[in-house]
Design a protein around this nucleic acid. Sequence first.
DNA 1: GTCTATACGAGGATAGAC
DNA 2: GTCTATCCTCGTATAGAC
Lengths: 191, 191
Amino acid sequence: MEKSTSQQILDVAQDMVRSRGYSAFSYADISERIGIRKASIHYHFPSKDELVLKLVQYYREAFSRSCDRIVQSVASPQQQLMQFANLYRDGLRQGQICLCAMLTADFAVLPQAVQDEVQAFFQQTEAWLAALLQRGCEAKVWPCYPSPEVEAKGLIALLQGAQLLARGVEDSPAAFEQIVYPFLASRLSKA
Amino acid sequence: MEKSTSQQILDVAQDMVRSRGYSAFSYADISERIGIRKASIHYHFPSKDELVLKLVQYYREAFSRSCDRIVQSVASPQQQLMQFANLYRDGLRQGQICLCAMLTADFAVLPQAVQDEVQAFFQQTEAWLAALLQRGCEAKVWPCYPSPEVEAKGLIALLQGAQLLARGVEDSPAAFEQIVYPFLASRLSKA
DNA sequence: GTCTATACGAGGATAGAC
DNA sequence: GTCTATCCTCGTATAGAC
């Protein structure tokens, strides 16, 4: 079964926003990559703002499913935390930053609805990660810090900052690991 | 004494890139803000790329001077580290991200010369921070980690990620502190 | 659903007068 | 140094034929 045109548009658009940012991609870029005219894209997504809004909603759901898959596995909390970090690392293989991380840079020029959706993404991801940290604390696999929520925010900041920093280098995934793993280790080595 | 036009242009441009990013600011924006015609800006900076290149060079020097000021103070290593972190916090008062942090998001669309300058900024900043971490280790005010260089990269990633994350919130500087300070504390509390 | 054609403004840049 | 005038391209978006 073929992918629908609107799905192709979303895929290409996501790829472009995650590598270049919101302001630096256009309908013309998408049109070239999927072999369709600019005007046809407007049939599926009347305006760029609506396209990007759908993009973030779609991304949030997909990311959420990835997190669910991690939780539902039989892996230890340590392994789950590692898997979570590797979600970020793996995007780097194609120079892809977390969509919402990229959009925090473009935040000032985003329409309100997109800003809200980006904020919702972070709230959701922080809550998920805080819950994981809490489980690890209860299972005594790592120390209990005063606030899993704050801890989660910090880890997400680290992961996103590391993604952005690592892009300048030849082997980005390796650079990412070099930055992130020591930080994780210091929180996980008390197993 | 009045500020020169080219200095005004640089100031406004820096402000705009730090809040909106590379792709989302234009000569027209600058022209409006300083009350001059678009064409006149081209007299001082023939192309946008040259303007941004100067911008990053200028920023790197200014940031370097800020770091020197911290080093040359009589403050303890802990205080110096805090002052360094607060350089990032203070920009947030006007919604300003570190120029080079912002440009890592736009990295894929930057001209090579600007990419190189951004990389040089990080190399320089990492070296400076690694040296500070090393001094603190030698002075026994915090534990000696295997690699001050890697440690420095991680802290910079955290600071930049925290800057970007904090922007979505009402009180950004407070949100930044909430994320960053606990991480610093865990590395400084061994005083 | 996709096309052609087109409108309209924005963005970067240059020429030449003052 | 700054202006007006202008050029050209790109980006978003719409109308209407197929």
